[in-house]
Simulated scan of single mutants.
Amino acid sequence: MNLTISGHHLDVTPALREYVLTKLDRVTRHFDQVVDVNVLLTIDNQKEKDRRQKAEVTLHVKGRDIFVEHCHEDLYAAIDQLMDKLDRQVCRHKDRMQDHHHESAKRQVAAPL
């Protein structure tokens, strides 16, 4: 898994990097076929203070790219809620990728009674 954490108008401190890594562990625990992860942490110079800090993740898995973003007044809260969204999307993608075909009744071995 390739991981890129970058900041826009922000220095990515070791504490922020470690926080993002611990939150990403939850996602990779559910789905281990992650190829590439790009995390972008941004501080915008908007007038409204409550939506100033933004976190974005682009997750490349086999067959699809998953993009999630979230804005909040606190960067750590934005990362928390971002990872919640990402976790839901990864679980939904995993459910879709599972094989839902069942073996036919003729091919099944009868269980002894």
Rank of each mutant, 00 (worst) to 15 (best):
L16R: 01
A105Y: 13
L86Y: 00
K94S: 07
T42I: 08
I43P: 09
H100D: 05
L75R: 02
A15M: 10
R107K: 15
A55M: 06
Q108Y: 12
I43N: 08
G7Q: 09
N2S: 06
L82F: 05
D50G: 15
T4D: 09
V35W: 09
D74G: 04
R64V: 10
L3T: 04
K49G: 13
H102F: 05
C91I: 08
D36Y: 02
D99A: 06
H100I: 03
R88M: 04
V109F: 13
K54R: 13
V90E: 07
L41N: 00
T13M: 09
R64M: 11
R29Y: 06
F67V: 07
E103M: 15
Q89E: 10
D11Y: 10
R88H: 14
G63D: 06
Q33C: 04
Q89M: 09
S104F: 10
G63W: 03
K62T: 03
T4E: 12
D80W: 00
A78K: 01
Q89K: 13
R17H: 02
H30I: 06
L59M: 07
P14T: 14
P112A: 12
R29V: 08
L86C: 02
C71P: 11
C71M: 11
R29W: 08
F31D: 01
Q53D: 11
D36P: 03
T22L: 10
V34N: 01
D87S: 03
R64E: 10
T58H: 07
I43E: 14
I43S: 12
I43A: 15
K49D: 13
E56Y: 11
N38H: 13
T4K: 11
A15C: 04
L113V: 15
P112C: 05
D74N: 14
Q98S: 10
E18S: 03
T28A: 11
C91A: 14
Q89S: 14
K94M: 05
L86T: 02
T28V: 12
T22C: 13
V61R: 03
C91E: 15
L59W: 03
N2M: 04
A110F: 09
T4I: 15
D36R: 05
V90H: 02
D65L: 13
A78I: 04
Q81I: 03
Q53E: 08
P112E: 06
K106Q: 15
Y19F: 02
D87Y: 06
D65F: 07
R88S: 08
H100N: 02
Q89H: 05
A15K: 02
